[in-house]
Amino acid sequence: MKTIGALTISAPGDRELVMTRIFDAPRRLVFDAMTKPELLKRWLFGPPGWAMTVCEVDLQVGGKFRHVWRNDDGREMAMSGVHREIVPGERIVRTESFDFGCPTQAGEQVGTLVLTEQGGMTKMTLTVLYPSREARDGTLATGADQGLAAGYDRLADILAGL
């Protein structure tokens, strides 16, 4: 288990990642920010240097979603899937797969988002079930790379201040 800022992440079993986080907002608002394209585009950028360029969400069971991100250097990454279960404001189960741009995450994963409200705050539990252990660990490897890159950025800042 690891906690950075307000986010806690763990890798139980062989194929899962579980992320939990508290947001200081009512559940309905958090749900909207996580499902409405015009709001998703304002925060779900991916790693530093990436921005979301396409966001389509057909929020109904059997409805598709598609996200495309573009890096400053021109590289693109796309993820899409189908909604399997929707409880408005509370719960979404959907399939997710990278169409291109993320070779380590081959195959279809299943994401389950659960939001619970406690005293005006919202707790998010996001569970991602990967098709294989390799796919799960590949995701972590990507993050490790980015994390190290972020570490370099901080180092550069520190060095610049000396």
Binding site: K2, T3, I4, M19, D24, R42, W43, P48
Partner: peptide, 24 residues
């Protein structure tokens, strides 16, 4: 590995925090 991945996601969620503040 978790730490690096966590850092990337947390960057996004901090942006979401600001958006939620704005929306409220």
């Amino acid at each position: 590995w978790l730490e690096g991945y966590c850092r990337v996601l947390e960057g996004n969620y901090q942006r979401l925090d600001h958006l939620l503040d704005d929306l409220q």
